[in-house]
Design a protein around this nucleic acid. Structure first.
Lengths: 234, 234
DNA sequence: GTGGTAAACGAACGGGGTTCGTTTACCGGC
DNA sequence: GCCGGTAAACGAACCCCGTTCGTTTACCAC
């Protein structure tokens, strides 16, 4: 009675049916991150959630760094890139930004992980870049410009995702009187947003996204005009 | 000969002259971060650098979280906000972005720290926001819009700073053939940048900054036109 | 069968941040 | 001029973490 059914402690030795797999470990890690934050998703916690000893994880995952990379891929796989096949470049870029941000908005604590760690080249993230790059070039963006446009755009999205994960009251100046202009705009924003029902992060993201797209459209138009000019001149 | 001059081991008890101070600890931490990265700047390493036992640090700093916040303040204090007093809003924003990014570019590993941790409201960072907010409102931006413009702009800057800290080869598709469009734009950018001598991160930052400013100018103009319209109508 | 591979356990290791008690110096008041 | 409280250093622990290593057991191929 002390060995089998209630405590379900597994004895040493390979089990008849495999208990773990890389995929299962990654998904469990993501679930724990969502539930308890990053610090609640250590090796020991993941093992406990799976009813397993920590050392067993190392039969399927090289270490924590690789595990985090796996979780990141799990999240970024859900960023849709389909828009680039059917929409004009600017509308596609907009949809991409929305999907990108949404994917990480569902798992706020992972954003800091993605932002810092480098992505391994074999991961599926490269396919995302491929789809975006193809869309931009097909629309007429110069080859040597396309990647920097993508990176610049991604900078904004990533920053917005971080902002999304931050504490909403992070900026609150409170009752201090030594920053009057800051306090005034903070209060004005709070009231305006409460009336319209949108969150601070969404509002800033919307403004930035519109600005970025408008600016890129202007640059695109200028490039097209210059190209026309060159052709006429020759 | 075993007690005083060579090993310079300090005996227990309060020393005649204080050895530590919060400021000194923060500066040492920043120096170690610059020299050895984040993982080389733990409590024990900071103590060793100061010739002190780890526990002594806790007489001046509550814990690692507070220490990190202090380091972040140390860096962000160096972001100049003077431009807002003398330049038009858009030129000031541009200068702010350049200074902001430069401040963290000097200490790449700190970027990830700033991005994630919330800032305590009493810190000097609030003064930065105050200066920026005052500049925007004075230029005519509506009170309830100003903060979201600032946050959106900061999202981009922060993302760009993270990009700056990332491995330059992070995106390199290498020789794989399954992402042709991505490989093509990567190669095209490499060649173009090598010719002009600018770094990938700088290029993307420049493009994004121009786009963001152009977009905000357009929004500003639209708001001004609408305001004029309202006035004429009434 | 028999040996090799692989997946689980279990016990340790090393290194982090942190706490607590002790020792010593300064400082303010009787 | 002593005397007690506060504060700053030490030193030894504590707990938690990621990780490694040896052992045990199951499967599989020859």
């Amino acid at each position: 009675m002390a060995s089998e059914e209630s405590a379900k402690r597994r004895r040493a030795g390979r089990p008849k049916q495999n208990v773990l797999s890389p995929r299962l470990i990654h998904e469990t890690a993501l679930r724990l991150i969502d539930r308890h934050g990053v610090e609640g998703a250590g090796m020991r916690a993941i093992a406990a959630e799976l009813g397993v000893r920590p050392s067993s994880l190392y039969n399927h995952v090289a270490g924590q760094a690789e595990l985090i990379a796996g979780v990141r891929d799990l999240v970024s796989e859900r960023i849709p890139t389909a828009p680039f096949a059917e929409l004009p470049w600017d509308a596609a870029l907009e949809q991409w930004a929305l999907g990108y941000r949404l994917a990480f908005a569902s798992h706020p604590p992972t954003i800091a992980l993605l932002a810092v760690q480098p992505l391994d080249p074999d991961s599926s993230t490269s396919f995302m870049y491929d789809a975006v790059a193809a869309g931009l070039v097909r629309a007429g963006w110069p080859q040597e410009r396309a990647l920097s446009v993508i990176v610049a755009f991604e900078c904004f999205i990533l920053g917005a995702a971080l902002d999304l994960a931050a504490d909403p009251a992070m900026l609150d100046p409170g009752r201090r009187g030594d920053v009057p202009a800051f306090s005034a705009v903070y209060r004005a924003r709070s009231e305006a947003l409460e009336a319209s029902g949108t969150s601070p992060a969404d509002d800033a993201f919307g403004i930035g996204l519109r600005a970025m797209l408008a600016g890129l459209r202007a640059e695109y138009a200028a490039l097209a005009a210059q190209k026309n000019d060159d052709r006429r001149r020759s």
